[in-house]
Design a binder for these strands. Structure first.
Lengths: 205, 205
DNA sequence: ATAGTAACAAACTAGGTGGTCGGTTTATAT
DNA sequence: ATATAAACCGACCACCTAGTTTGTTACTAT
């Protein structure tokens, strides 16, 4: 096999199982040996490709987390259609993966932010960068929605974006144990109630 | 000094600094020695009073966390006044302590839930109990609000409670790094927008 | 005064942790 | 075929962890 391909494959395997284990067990609670055991690889292989556990994690954030957040939470709401529908569908999909206990990258992001807060500023910076990208793009979508006449023009897009992200991160925290499906249903309903409050008032059509 | 008093004092000191360190550094990332060093006590003292690190933490949840959640997030919204004002003021106060980087017990709860999710079912049960108590009491307040004519009677109180808690937990996650004061302001504004959407429609007063 | 015991101290165990390093395999270029 | 370097192995190190054990105070009831 081509050496370069092998290198890429090994590194990607490590990053993939690394993310899975960091997500399910937590960063500090997952040892490098845990990851290597899963792949039947040795310490030597790990430290040949990565310089430290911290750097390894940062590469995971940039190569896997950031891209997934982009493709699952940002791209789907980029159109010029009704922003309420775009965002609703996007959240609906994300929470549905959560109900099925699959990896939901918005939640993973929030989880890591909790874990590293006040403990590792370097990693926190990278996580906050991803969060910021999500926020900025949500603001864009909302501004576009105002421009296209869907959203009341007095609405504070920044505030709405913050509110949406925070409620999403929060509901995911709550969904971890008790009846996720019921929680999702209730949450989505209230999101729609909220959207009604900020939609453009049609002055007698 | 009375021996019983001394016992109580030592245990409470351990629990207090224990909670502070678990909160700031995380449970798995805080060793018992860390706590003991802070108090200039020895391992012998710890294992004389507590049977394990896990039991120690559970006692903290019940003795400190649960009580604080009750006195800071439940009691303040128990009156018969306008529930929107009660909840708004309560969140306002809680987020203000967050801005000043003091311990906000709603957030601590959400943080621990993230940390123990999927890692320690026994501890998770105790944390979920506290969360459930908060939720149940929020529902009571909302129902009372409907009864007293403040909240639209078609409103799903359970869903609103879930939505409020999730958004609160989420905004606290976001406040950990970037401009907490601005986030708080934006968040509180959108909470009010949301409340407007579920308040009782006054049919020509 | 003294016996008993609560409340600690301090050294220790057994098992992990991130990280290092000399050596071995495997693919590729010549 | 052979030289070379990439990719990987696995023993090892220093350190840290929760938890145990054995001793030493200091108070307190009698």
């Amino acid at each position: 096999m081509n050496k370069n391909l092998k290198r890429m494959a090994t590194m990607q395997n490590m990053q993939k199982t690394g993310l899975e284990l960091f997500y399910t067990k937590g960063y500090y609670n997952t040892s490098i040996d845990d990851i290597l055991k899963e792949l039947s690889l040795s310490k030597g292989a790990f430290y040949y490709h990565f310089s430290s556990k911290e750097d390894f994690f940062i590469e995971i954030v940039q190569n896997l987390l950031a891209r997934k957040v982009y493709s699952l939470l940002i791209e789907p709401i980029e159109g010029h259609e009704n922003p309420f529908e775009l965002i609703t569908n996007c959240f609906e999909d994300a929470l549905e993966t959560a109900v099925h206990n699959e990896m939901d990258f918005g939640f993973i992001l929030g989880n890591f932010i909790s874990e590293f807060n006040g403990r590792n500023p370097k990693i926190m910076k990278h996580l906050n960068d991803v969060l910021k990208i999500w926020e900025v793009n949500l603001v864009s979508t909302l501004q576009r929605g105002k421009f296209n006449g869907y959203i009341d023009r007095h609405t504070d897009s920044e505030a709405v974006a913050v509110f949406l992200i925070s409620s999403f991160l929060g509901i995911r925290t709550m969904m971890v144990e008790t009846a996720p499906s019921a929680l999702k249903y209730r949450f989505m309903h209230q999101i729609k109630v909220y959207f009604k409050a900020i939609e453009a008032k049609k002055e007698n059509v």
